[in-house]
């Protein structure tokens, strides 16, 4: 049961702590041997995190809804959803989220949304970001690599305006373009740092073109291999569901984002989401640890 010798050699090099080149990552993207890919990614993941898998309980709440009503006590982060029409509305939403957040983090909006808000209000982008930050926004919910033209500039302006530990996502790039995005993220991290999370699975999925299981685990493994300099490879629990999210943990992911914060089971015989998450992590022979929005294990 030999792997193709080329993959074997790559696995050895990854095991020795070597980082694969951009060209090697691009080649790996074409292999159907997802298990070899997974083994390499798992090697990197274990070096960085051991068997630990963190998860974050998030209360998602539309910017115009009542935060008091949609934020259960167990939430560790409030995530503001939707795209407000003006910067003032966005700032007001952040303030009301902040008011009930206490110590908890508040995240919201995507990079393209904020750009649009600034442009519409004829506000300079850094000023808009500063205003949101001052109102209590801790993080942008999404910085889609495929939604920005100059990633270095984005990383720089976010750092400058007080946003730390960035979370990069992929919005809808097809698999053929995704590898290049992952490599862009790794290169940006090399140059400036400040990126904490890479979430490689599309945040926009249409039913006309759903992703496949192979595609998903490959993207996760490639992200882990392409960006050993970014601490965390993350999967969205709610969007991708327990089965795929759990398998992704064996392909290099170490963090589950967007676990439902409500403790009540959705119906009579199912278990509360947090128990489901822990059960799935443990069944993959990994160790669950809850974290807060600042990446501190609780």
């Amino acid at each position: 049961m030999e792997m193709a010798p080329a993959l074997d050699r790559l696995l050895e090099r990854v095991g020795a702590g070597e980082r694969l080149s951009a060209a090697e990552i691009a080649d790996l993207a074409a292999t159907p041997d997802i298990l070899a890919l997974g083994m390499m990614a798992d090697t990197v993941r274990r070096r960085l995190h051991g068997t630990r898998v963190t998860y974050l309980r998030v209360a998602g709440c539309a910017f115009d809804a009542s935060f008091a009503e949609c934020v259960p006590p167990a939430a560790r982060e409030i995530r503001i959803g939707g795209a407000p029409g003006t910067l003032a509305v966005a700032v007001a939403a952040v303030r009301s989220a902040r008011a009930i957040a206490g110590e908890r983090t508040v995240s919201g909006f995507s990079w393209p949304d904020v750009e649009a808000l600034a442009a519409r209000g004829r506000t300079a982008l850094p000023d808009a970001l500063r205003e949101l930050r001052a109102a209590g926004l801790d993080a942008l919910a999404e910085v889609p690599i495929d939604g920005v033209t100059d990633l270095d500039a984005v990383v720089a302006v976010l750092a400058e305006t007080g946003f730390e530990r960035l979370r990069l996502t992929c919005a809808q790039a097809p698999p053929a373009e995704r590898t290049a995005l992952l490599l862009r993220a790794a290169a940006a991290q090399d140059r400036a740092g400040g990126i904490h999370v890479l979430n490689p699975l599309p945040t926009v999925v249409t039913s006309a073109r759903p992703t496949t299981g192979y595609e998903d685990v490959k993207a996760v493994a490639l992200a882990r291999l392409a960006a050993p300099n970014i601490p965390t490879i993350q999967v969205d629990w709610l969007r991708y569901g327990p089965k795929l999210a759990q398998v992704a943990l064996t392909f290099g992911a170490d963090d589950l984002d967007n676990v439902t914060a409500s403790d009540a089971a959705p119906d009579g015989h199912r278990r509360a989401p947090v128990q489901e998450v822990r059960r799935n992590i443990e069944a993959a022979a990994l160790s669950p640890a809850e974290r807060d929005g600042r990446f501190n294990v609780i």
Binding site: I34, L35, P210, G213, Y214, K243, L244, V247
Partner: peptide, 12 residues
């Protein structure tokens, strides 16, 4: 029972 994604991964 496993859904399309894990169903497909079965092939590995």
């Amino acid at each position: 029972t496993q859904g399309g994604k894990v169903g497909q991964l079965s092939l590995a």
